[in-house]
């Protein structure tokens, strides 16, 4: 998806014919500057166009910016973590293709969300925080590969829950929702891969999916990441009672959300 398509699909949430006309005509003007995802001539875009966009549906736009900046914070964390991991040399050579790909995705997410917040929604993309991946001296992820993998799993499983928890908050904008869902499933693919990798290396017995609310052999400090994952009731239907399938397997079949405060509580362990 490129950003012009995104802009194309944004719709003015207003009843004023004048504002609607302005939205669509500004959009047409904006279009002429080319594909923003390639960063073409952004400096040449008249400020008036950028400032006109958020004027439409201001409250909705502010809310979207808030959600996407929250997501961007997490993507900054993930990208920096993998970049430092790759630079440190801690990663087994046999696994480098996996972590290079994950790193590339997290960087793409950082860039994408930065563009959307800054150049489509007219907001201020959150700057990369300073991270402390030792969490105050408790971990050595860039010296100990087992710890690197453990924190990677923690971050990916948290990311899945974080995006899931925000879906309802962006559902009024179809394109932002679809983009968020399309990042969400990528994070889930990462999580599955890293979880299985840890088990293949004998560090845990976790599967690609989360069984009950188990954090496996991860440090106790990660328990909040898995709290609530044991849920087996959805939409008022207890799926264990319905199917007779064991609760462990049913819990694996549905991932659970976390809200923003819960996620920030987890992430704050790694803020310098």
């Amino acid at each position: 998806m490129n950003l012009l398509k995104l802009l194309d699909k944004m719709c003015p949430e207003t009843n004023s014919p004048e504002e609607k006309d302005m939205f669509f005509s500004r959009r047409e003007a904006f279009r002429q500057f080319g594909d923003m995802s390639k960063k073409v001539a952004m400096a040449a875009v008249p400020l008036g166009i950028l400032s006109a966009l958020p004027k439409v549906a201001k409250a909705d736009t502010a809310s979207l910016i808030g959600v996407l900046n929250f997501a961007l914070t997490l993507e900054h964390l993930e990208y920096r973590y993998y970049q430092m991991g790759i630079e440190s040399g801690v990663i087994d050579g046999a696994d480098s293709a996996i972590f290079m790909k994950i790193r590339d995705h997290e960087l793409a997410h950082v860039n994408f969300l930065t563009e959307v917040v800054g150049n489509v929604l007219g907001g201020t993309p959150v700057a990369e925080p300073d991270f402390d991946f030792t969490a105050g001296g408790n971990f050595m992820p860039f010296e100990d590969y087992g710890q690197f993998l453990a924190l990677s799993q923690a971050f990916e499983d948290t990311g899945v829950r974080a995006y899931k928890g925000q879906a309802g908050n962006v559902m009024e904008n179809d394109v932002v929702l679809t983009a968020a869902l399309s990042i969400h499933s990528v994070e889930a693919r990462h999580a599955s891969m890293v979880r299985r990798l840890r088990t293949k290396k004998g560090q845990d017995d976790v599967k690609g999916w989360i069984t009950n609310g188990s954090n496996g052999t991860l440090p106790a400090a990660t328990q909040a990441i898995y709290a609530g994952e044991e849920n087996v009731s959805h939409g008022g239907v207890n799926v264990v009672d319905l199917t007779g399938i064991d609760a462990g397997a049913v819990s694996e079949g549905w991932d659970e959300p976390l809200n923003k405060d819960q996620v920030l509580g987890i992430a704050s362990l790694f803020l310098a």
Partner: peptide
């Protein structure tokens, strides 16, 4: 929407595992 979100990430976890079985250690999982 939330129920669909709870299921889709599990499907993605499945997909990544199957892809890794087909081409272990590669970037094919994603």
């Amino acid at each position: 929407l939330l129920i669909a979100g709870k299921i889709v990430s599990v499907e993605a976890r499945h997909a990544a595992a199957i892809r890794d079985l087909l081409n272990p250690g590669s970037a094919d999982f994603a």
